[in-house]
Write a protein that binds this DNA or RNA. Structure first.
Lengths: 508, 508
DNA sequence: CGCGACACGTGAATC
DNA sequence: TGATTCACGTGTCGC
């Protein structure tokens, strides 16, 4: 769990809090499970989520464990062509790029992980300690602010990376993210600044984002790195490490509103809130307290005081949290699906999405017109439908770019990348044999294959990745392992190899 | 401006409140102008809005009257390909469908109008009365809750329709919109229920949404229809009609937070807050007061009391308001750009956008392939545009539709597939050497490579595709061509080949 | 009356 | 140090 905080929302209903958290340490198994559940949930949620909304509606199973089958369900249905595969991103979970076809993480949380801005680039992975239940714990630690994406920074990419590892299964999501990463980064720290807020961390349990932010920042900044690098500690840490937390706690807010609460989780914990129905308040609370231990908290909860105002608030509070999370998840999803993200800012994400959307439309127009006119000379000035194309410079080349200019290179979204775009490759070694790769370049025929070959030749097994090939070629490998026994690969080796393959992919 | 409420945000800076409002009645001319201005503003805002953000930055003109030229500007710029033309939506403004290329309404308000849910379907247009300045007035009327999109309903489609006529120029945007309309709806009332909250109403001045909601609901419900149908009155009405407003006002909230304020606008008015720099507090305030007249308000501002806490808050407060508004605007914009909105829910909008985006990608692929194949047989069964594949019901025709319901299976997200899942492969030949492949299966190590290899072995060159690898492996090849001279591949060949590779990917 | 949805204000963090 | 951004909790409204 390192960075990635997955937050699961109960399968059937409530597992909100991060299941992933549970097994932080040991890694694999549980986490995965958690992830799946999350995914599962997601699906369900998606299906069901908006109610009549679009997302498929199928609630069914979900509940408890059956994540898997849920999934299968989808698959079946899936035949589902339509979907390109989005990355589902769950605000809570850090894995950003998930590509879920389903949109709605909301009810059932999903995973996601958004790249964070990477304040603390140095820290490779931030596992999340908190277990699901424990999750609360974590939250507490981090604190109230659990919210969605914030800047957090530090964990940013890490989160992404980490998560994936954790939940290889889910990994799928990451897909589209590429673009982002390309910019700089989604995968890793690559892009220092770009991704600001959204990053994955989002929420572990509840609000990974802030959580991450703070946690990361504080911890990282303050103390840290050492301890956290590999392990989960980060998250736990807060809990465990009183000091840092304290700082956080002090702020904890609670004081302000004062009361509220009622429920447990209240501030510190947050984690649960997502859980929705099944509130694990208790557990979480307990943990929280730990975390809360800091001064202020007491003021707040006092214990769990609920005496406060009326009873109702608590419920609403949870609901609101869920809502927020859902919204964030969607936002992340959108983000993951949009190639060129530019800023991680919420508004920017939205804006980028809009722009991208426009580009696509434009492109469609162009194609359409072309199609019509095609055969013959067509191209003329006529501009069939509307002036589509003339303008569309964007369509092809720089679609959205516009904005970008300045940041010209950084993100170049796959789309944007004119094919000519020189390849950009970022490689980051995770601990063990893990490798994160972010590659972005102009799309040229054969590049996909050549890249895959290159990776294969490098002895890397891609476990989690999202690759998109449109205008440009973008690949974000969230998790890959070196199966080739031999020596450890050096990032540069990988990089050059990939660049080479990109350079001469046509020759494939 | 009948329905469409354009909200202009000062050109240079602040014209926040709705210019459009001004000329309600007479219809055409002024309205248009208003619209234009709105548009104009929007552009500017867009351009400038996010600062470094993407949106083009160009403030220039905007200001006063020049709506037209602005537009032309756009066009020129337009050559500007980039933009597809979005409909800009401003949370504050009600006009939904404007198609502005620019994304960022925030700073400079823009216009928009979102289709509302149409609570009051019967009412065709809701013009906004309030003029810019007056806008405040309006706001006041509606009330504090000016927020973003709320349900409002009634105006929904109407707004859209109206607008278009007004700004033919912008019409371009519509282009893409089609999809929407096809969906059911965006244009007219067609879809009765779908659009709920976002509707255009949004806000005139500050928080259109709620405003609208309440205003609309109350008014509509309570009284209304008759008067409003064609004309602008609706909007004005609130202002004019005290009664309705009052109801609204009562709720106004303000009381809760109580203080804050400092600034003028405080609650009731809100309008200004968006304005940012130039706060027209005064004007707005004045108006507000009118609106505020309801009981509670007084409690709140009391006047403008600012005594409260510290100094800082106020500023931040305003900033936050702006931010919120901006975000809402973007959201609306997104909404306006996405044809099939289904629910007006924020989350739904996001989700729909995501889905729509996917569709577009798919469509592009289709077109692309078609295009390539075109000359020749093109027509085939392929169903040119859309439905390429069987699965993609959505893609073509009903793109979004899916959403809906039925499509249980339809979406199956890639993610979902548990690894165990048997591979599913769908292959469709496009004309020419084009091939569409949809593959979905459990994720197992090496599957990516093996699949790539299989494709390579098949002599297929992937040109457009999205591949995700997480829990499951999902690959959607939108466009691939057979470069292997030889014979034409048979879909089944491809399919079996891929299935084999998936089956034994580990052997890779 | 609960539940969902929003907006608001606020504290905090980052730039 | 100011400006933004975010998340949170809360009040409110509509179903």
């Amino acid at each position: 769990m390192k960075n990635s905080m997955v937050w699961i929302e109960g399968s059937g209903e409530e597992l909100e809090i991060a299941s992933w958290a549970k097994s932080n340490n040991d890694g694999g198994f549980e986490n995965n499970q958690g992830m799946e559940m999350g995914a599962l949930c997601t699906f369900n949620s998606m299906l069901e989520a908006d109610q009549d909304d679009d997302w498929y509606i199928t609630n069914a199973n979900a509940a408890g464990g059956g994540g898997q089958h849920v999934i299968s369900f989808l698959n079946e249905s899936g035949g589902n062509n339509n979907q390109l595969l989005l990355q589902a991103v769950d605000s809570s979970a850090s894995c950003s790029s998930v590509f879920n076809s389903n949109l709605d993480p909301s009810h059932n949380q999903v995973s996601y992980f958004l790249p964070q801005k990477s304040l603390i680039p140095t820290i490779p992975s931030y596992p999340f300690e908190g277990t699901f239940d424990l999750g609360c714990h974590e939250n507490g630690i981090l604190e109230n602010r659990v919210g969605g994406f914030s800047d957090l920074g530090a964990q940013s990419q890490l989160g992404t990376l980490n998560l994936c590892p954790n939940n290889p299964q889910f990994g799928a999501n990451s897909f589209l993210q590429l673009p982002q990463s390309s910019g700089g980064n989604s995968l890793l720290f690559g892009r220092p600044k770009i991704l600001k807020p959204l990053d994955n961390f989002a929420s572990v349990g509840a609000q990974p984002t802030l959580f991450q932010k703070r946690a990361a920042l504080r911890r990282n900044l303050g103390s840290n790195l050492g301890s956290l690098n590999l392990v989960n500690q980060m998250n736990l840490k807060p809990a465990s490490s009183g000091a840092i937390d304290d700082q956080v706690n002090e702020k904890k807010r609670k004081a302000s509103s004062g009361d509220d609460l009622e429920d447990i989780s209240i501030d510190g914990t947050n984690l649960n809130y997502d859980s929705e129905d099944q509130v694990f308040d208790n557990s979480s609370v307990n943990k929280l307290e730990e975390s809360d231990k800091n001064g202020v908290n007491s003021s707040i909860t006092g214990g769990d005081q609920k005496g406060k105002k009326k009873g109702p608030p608590a419920k609403n509070l949870m609901a609101e949290r869920r809502r927020r999370k859902k919204l964030n998840d969607r936002l992340y999803m959108l983000r993951s699906v949009v190639p060129k993200i530019s800023k991680m800012d919420r508004a920017s994400i939205l804006g980028d999405a809009i722009e991208y959307l426009k580009e696509l439309l434009q492109k469609i127009n162009d194609l359409h017109s072309e199609l019509e006119s095609t055969p013959s000379s067509s191209s003329l000035s006529l501009t069939p439908t509307a002036s589509f194309y003339p303008l569309s410079p964007m369509a092809s080349g720089l679609p959205a770019c516009i904005k970008e200019e300045h940041s010209p290179s950084s993100f170049a979204s796959p789309l944007s990348s004119p094919t000519g775009q020189p390849a950009r490759v970022e490689v980051r070694l995770r601990e063990g044999r893990g490798v994160n790769i972010h590659m972005f370049c102009g799309c040229s025929p054969g590049i996909l294959l050549s890249t895959m070959r290159a990776i294969d030749n490098l002895g890397l097994d891609i476990q989690q990745a999202v690759i998109s090939c449109f205008n440009g070629f973008a690949m974000d490998v969230f998790r890959a392992e070196q199966w080739l026994d031999g020596q450890e690969l050096h990032p540069d080796q990988i990089k050059t190899m990939l660049l080479d393959s990109a350079g001469c992919h046509e020759m494939v």
